[in-house]
C-alpha cells in the first residue's frame, strides 16, 4: 500500500511539470497583458512595471526562475493586488473554500447515500422512483439556478436565512453548502444505488439472509461496505471538484474563497496568480485521487489483494 502511494506520488512530479509548463505557455500567449487598461498606459510606465515583475526578461529565463521559486514553494507576487503575494492570497481563500467544500460534501453524502441506499432496498417501487427522480433533477439543476432560488425562498420571502456572507451571521453557511452539495448528492445517490443493488444480489448477502440476520445488520454491516466503493472512488475527484468548482456559489453568496480569485486572475492576466492557483488545484486533485484510491483499496478486499500481489 505505501509503495503504491509512493509510486503514485513520484508519477505526480512529471504531471505537475507538464501542468506548469502548459499553463505558463498559455497565460503568456494570451492576448493582452496584466498591465493593459482602458485608459492608455504610457510606455515608460509599462516598462517600469514589467521590469519590477521581471517580465522584461526572455520568456525561457522567466520560466526557469519561476520553476526555481515554485520548487521552494514561492508562487511570487500577485500582479494585480499590489503588495500581496500569491501564497498570501491563496492562504486567505483556503479556509472559506475548504469549509464550504467540506459542508457541501457532508450534505452530498448524507442526502446521497441515504437516498441511494433507500432506493436500492426497494428497487422499482416509489421508494426508488421518488429519490432517483429527485436525483436526476439535482444533477440537472445548475447551482446558478438553485442558489438564487433558495435565496429567494428562504432568504427573501421566508427570511429564515441570510442571503449571503460566510461566518458573518448565524446560518449563512447553510444555503451555500446545500447549493454546492446538491449536485453531488444527486450523483452520489445514483452511485450508491447502483453499488448497493449489485452487492445485494451477491451470494454472501443471500447467505447472510439465510442465516437469519436482521436486515439492518445486512445493509449496514455487510452490504454498505462493498456497495459504497463506487462512492468512495468518487469522493477524491468530487472533493477536488468542490474545492475548485465553487466559483459560482462563492459569487452568488459572496463567500471570500478561492474560486473568485481564480476566475478574476484569468480575466486580469494576473500571470503568477493563475499559475499559482492552477498548481495548487492540480496538486489537490492528484492528492485527493490518491487518497480515494487508497481508501478504496482498504475497503475492497479484492483490490487489496491485487495491490499486495503487484508489489
Amino acid at each position: 500500500m505505501w509503495r503504491f502511494a509512493l509510486n503514485r506520488l513520484l508519477q505526480a512530479i512529471p504531471v505537475l511539470l507538464i501542468v506548469i509548463s502548459a499553463t505558463f505557455m498559455l497565460v503568456h500567449s494570451a492576448p493582452g497583458g496584466p498591465f493593459s487598461a482602458e485608459k492608455s498606459v504610457p510606455p515608460e510606465v509599462i516598462a517600469a512595471l514589467e521590469a519590477q515583475y521581471n517580465l522584461d526578461q526572455p520568456l525561457w529565463q522567466q520560466y526557469i526562475s519561476y520553476l526555481g521559486d515554485v520548487v521552494q514553494g514561492d508562487f511570487g507576487p500577485s500582479f494585480k493586488y499590489s503588495g500581496r503575494t500569491v501564497n498570501e492570497l491563496i492562504a486567505a481563500g483556503i479556509p472559506a473554500t475548504a469549509e464550504l467544500a467540506f459542508y457541501a460534501m457532508m450534505v452530498a453524502l448524507i442526502i446521497g447515500v441515504s437516498a441511494g441506499v433507500a432506493a436500492a432496498m426497494r428497487p422499482n417501487t416509489m421508494q426508488d422512483y421518488v429519490p432517483m427522480s429527485a436525483a436526476m433533477l439535482g444533477i440537472c439543476m445548475p447551482s446558478f439556478l438553485l442558489g438564487p432560488l433558495l435565496v429567494l425562498i428562504f432568504g427573501i420571502y421566508l427570511e429564515w436565512l441570510p442571503v449571503s456572507g460566510w461566518g458573518d451571521m448565524p446560518g449563512d453557511k447553510i444555503m451555500p453548502s446545500i447549493t454546492l452539495g446538491t449536485g453531488y448528492a444527486a450523483y452520489i445517490a445514483r452511485l450508491s444505488r447502483g453499488g448497493m443493488l449489485e452487492v445485494l444480489s451477491q451470494d454472501y448477502i443471500r447467505t447472510a439472509r439465510a442465516k437469519g440476520l436482521s436486515e439492518r445488520v445486512i445493509i449496514f454491516k455487510h452490504a454498505m461496505r462493498g456497495g459504497l466503493i463506487p462512492v468512495v472512488a468518487f469522493l477524491g475527484p468530487a472533493f477536488a471538484g468542490l474545492l475548485g468548482g465553487s466559483f459560482v456559489v462563492e459569487t452568488i453568496f459572496q463567500i471570500p474563497g478561492l474560486g473568485r480569485f481564480y476566475v478574476q486572475a484569468a480575466f486580469n492576466r494576473d500571470y503568477t496568480m493563475i499559475l499559482g492557483m492552477t498548481i495548487f488545484f492540480a496538486t489537490l486533485i492528484i492528492l485527493f485521487n490518491l487518497l480515494s484510491d487508497m481508501l478504496a483499496i482498504w475497503l475492497d478486499p479484492k483490490l487489496r489483494h491485487q495491490a499486495r500481489g503487484n508489489n
Partner: peptide, 28 residues
C-alpha cells in the same frame, strides 16, 4: 438489475426508516 425477494421488503422499511440509525441521527 436484480432484487431480492419482495417478502422481506416491509421488514427492511421498518428497520431502516422507523428505527434510529446513525444517518437519521446526523440528518436530524
Amino acid at each position: 438489475m436484480s432484487h431480492f425477494p419482495t417478502a422481506t421488503q416491509p421488514n427492511i422499511a421498518t428497520h431502516s426508516f422507523f428505527r434510529p440509525n446513525p444517518i437519521k441521527a446526523i440528518t436530524a
